[in-house]
Design a protein around this nucleic acid. Structure first.
Lengths: 329, 329
DNA sequence: CTGGATTTTGGTATCGGTAACAATACTATT
DNA sequence: AATAGTATTGTTACCGATACCAAAATCCAG
């Protein structure tokens, strides 16, 4: 930058202004500086700028696992909005481990990110404390927690699960099995389970622990769950797969065994992946606003950072969901 | 940091050393400093450190589109290795546009990333020039280009496509259709097409422009391609979908129309997504080392950055692929 | 034409660390 | 015990920008 200043015959301060606050500099100066910048091929040093101004243009994002299709839409939404404001995204994965998450939060704070996005809503006390102390805005977006850290942009896993279970009940299914992902350190999973139970209760149906299962992610797991449930409790008439692509695996298993869907057993899923609309029978599911969550998260974060919109502190945005009835129920 | 130094009764230099080069400081000092750090709740400022030392611990990654399942495995591989060395990942998407990519490269260089990972292998001249001038190591990993920017960790799209087409030819298929993604600004796509043509030539089969199609991504596109090809050129006996989930869409279309696979038409795919093994018939495909590419990319980059392994400059790592014969051919 | 208000530009300190070298303390050798 | 050698700690300058305030230039009314 010094070189640019010398070349343009001005002070570094003027160069800085010409580049960052063009309005505060005369037309002529601006051109002279920009020409010098071009001639020298000068590239501003963001590190120095951030250090000096005590403002940064990076946002930290922590997801449990990057290779999960449900996050990518959210990341895309985040990324697109942030890019348009010149912000950068730092991404890391916590592997569903709160301690790992805490570690990553520390690293991000060290990098002086100006905002933090956390998918998980379970954090260690130290993590919470560090974030509070740093004073930067945070958005949680995997669920709507009882005690938010700061802002929340999400949908309610409890409500969604409740809605789908009620839907199955209203369609006349009486023995509704439930499969979800492991619920340790995963309050999304826990809330889904609770929503399911609340709905059963509302429907006047008795819960049956034999048909409530936790499993890992993936097609194979879904297939296995379907086989296990139907064989161990033959009177089951519906399966609600509250996790990832479980339902697809379950459907394939039915096709393989010759169990008709929804004749022999109805099937419902949780996330509207493209696949569910194209398989036969198409699968009833919940459309979750994954992309919108990312977009809205970015917007609310930017308001806080750039406009200092303090009134947004602690705000909770429930983006809702949509139940899509298809052939499988 | 000044506070920590005062509290521990030492100079800031000693604090810096106690934290970053523990070996260069006496046992007693180290403990005294660490205690002060804990008491104050001090968090080092990475920006300042990087600026001062002229070294950063961030790597920039540019992918065409984040919400594409084939990249996530690579990102995971990258992320895991980098994390273990305390490096951070900045991710951005170029939307398949070289100008956008150039813009992002500029931003990343401004942020003084110490390495760059590019999925695309097509760049603007200015982008190439900026990277060269910056002197930082770069890895391309979407393809093996004729003129690499620097290092490459990938597989050959040409070889893979050639291998699959030859495989189909050897199985006795004579009228092999080919579907790929749009090839503008996408040399991966172009290379796949060339591999296909080279194989046809080798097999002594005549190319037929009516059965070579370019389409967008997605299940619907795959379905549409299958329908179009079979109806316009009935003598076609195989379809090679060289892109994403096209093959799954194509398979569903066959099931819907009652075309047996591989009886009426054989089907082959390009990327070994989990799904292809679970559908019925299971689909012949190419297993590409997506995760390994990420892992290896990170390692080679770290060698360059931390050990200054200059002999690695310009190295090209071909991670190969594996052809998986299944029921669909 | 002059004085004061306003805009434009510059000087200097500083952000929070590390590099490079200097100074001091400690060890070992003869 | 003296000296060289090594390990430990400190001093000072600087990384490359921006903040803050001062100085110079420009403008305008009276």
């Amino acid at each position: 930058m010094r070189d640019v200043a010398v070349r343009a015959g001005v002070s570094t301060m003027t160069v800085s202004r010409a580049l960052n606050e063009p309005g505060k500099v005369s037309e002529e100066m601006r051109e002279r500086v920009l020409r010098a910048v071009r001639e020298i091929g000068y590239l501003p040093n963001h590190l120095a700028g951030s250090l000096s101004s005590n403002r940064s243009t990076t946002i930290g994002l922590i997801v449990p696992s990057i290779d999960n299709s449900i996050y990518t839409q959210t990341v895309k939404g985040l990324s697109e909005v942030l890019k348009s404001s010149g912000f950068q995204l730092m991404i890391a994965e916590s592997g569903y481990d709160p301690n790992e998450e805490e570690e990553l939060i520390t690293v991000f704070l060290s990098h002086r990110v100006s905002g933090l996005v956390l998918h998980s809503t379970e954090h260690t006390p130290q993590a919470t404390e560090k974030i509070r102390k740093s004073g930067i805005p945070v958005v949680e977006n995997g669920n709507i927690p009882k005690e938010p850290l700061d802002m929340v942009v999400s949908f309610s896993n409890y409500d969604a699960s409740y809605a789908m279970t009620m839907h199955l009940g209203r369609l006349g299914y009486r023995k509704i099995a439930f499969a979800s992902l492991y619920s340790v350190h995963n309050d999304r999973s826990q809330d889904r389970l609770q929503g399911y139970h609340a709905a059963l209760n509302q429907l006047g149906l008795d819960p049956d622990p034999r048909i409530v299962l936790e499993t890992e992610r993936g097609l194979a797991a879904g297939a296995e769950v379907m086989a296990r449930v139907v064989q161990s409790v033959p009177e089951v008439d519906a399966l609600f797969c509250a996790g990832d692509v479980l339902a697809v695996g379950a459907l394939f298993e039915c096709q393989k065994r010759g169990w008709t869907v929804p004749g022999r057993i109805a099937l419902a899923s949780f996330d509207d992946v493209d696949l569910l609309r194209h398989v036969s029978p198409s699968v009833t599911t919940l459309r979750l606003p994954r992309y919108d969550i990312g977009e809205r998260t970015a917007r609310i974060l930017l308001s806080r950072i750039m406009d200092g919109a303090e009134h947004l502190r602690g705000s909770v945005v429930d983006l809702k969901f949509e139940l899509i009835q298809r052939e499988s129920t």
